[in-house]
């Protein structure tokens, strides 16, 4: 097991959002301010690690035929717990993310990793997979947030550095469209293209290395 390899996979070659194209809905909907992006990313990472660990532990107990139902119950349990805990201890984040926390239940990243990884691998590997995939998801969200917030509101770090963030562009210049769903699609499209390009370069380089050997 190789942590660096898994981290690279999570961030680039097998990024949940930009390569596996999972969890698009939340990515599009909440990436308007940095605060939302970080909050959502961390919540998903925590839930992903917990559900991966539990599902990996139970992988030999859960019969194949009912595995999806069992996974969903476990995931929904964790999501509801995180939702309640956020409401009680971080109300600002819970207000801001609203319905998207409960919707993590149907975020296909979590079920996808349970099915593709945790149900076939050991405890530690699954925990690391949850962490690296979570970091990949968070990274994708944060990049989306920074781009959309900068072009759409002209600020950086809204909610993280004060309520209005740091103003970079004067208020009259930003293109409002970037904050709207349209902007989500455009930004995501460009980012996916960029990731694919980088991944292709990486594969080419590796192939060249192989050939030189």
């Amino acid at each position: 097991m190789n942590f660096r390899k898994q981290l690279k996979a999570g961030l680039l070659t097998n990024n949940p959002v930009l390569s596996q194209l999972l969890g698009m809905c939340s990515t599009m909907a909440i990436t308007t301010t940095l605060f939302n992006g970080i909050g959502m990313g961390l919540s998903v990472t925590i839930i992903l690690i917990c559900s991966n660990v539990v599902i990996s532990l139970l992988r030999k107990v859960i019969p194949d035929k009912i595995r999806i139902a069992a996974y969903i119950v476990i995931i929904a349990g964790f999501v509801t717990m995180v939702d309640l805990l956020l409401k009680a201890y971080v109300p600002a984040l819970s207000d801001s993310l609203g319905v998207f926390i409960p919707l993590i239940v149907v975020n296909c990243i979590i079920l996808g990793r349970a099915e593709a990884f945790a149900s076939k691998n050991g405890l530690l590997a699954s925990a690391v997979d949850g962490l690296t995939q979570g970091i990949g998801y968070t990274a994708a969200l944060v990049v989306m947030c920074i781009i959309r917030e900068f072009l759409g509101s002209g600020t950086f770090g809204k909610g993280v550095f004060g309520a209005d963030g740091i103003r970079i562009l004067p208020a009259q210049y930003p293109a409002l469209m970037l904050i709207l769903p349209v902007g989500g699609f455009l930004t995501l499209g460009c980012l996916i293209a960029l990731t694919q390009w980088v991944n292709k370069k990486l594969t080419e380089r590796e192939a060249k290395k192989e050939a030189a050997r």
């Binding site: 139970l58 107990v61 859960i62 019969p63 009912i66 139902a69 069992a70 119950v73 476990i74 929904a76 349990g77 509801t80 717990m81």
Partner: peptide
């Protein structure tokens, strides 16, 4: 199995 999983999750919730 499903009943047990559901029961444990419900208890924790």
């Amino acid at each position: 199995t499903l009943f047990l999983i559901t029961a444990v999750v419900a208890g924790l919730l």
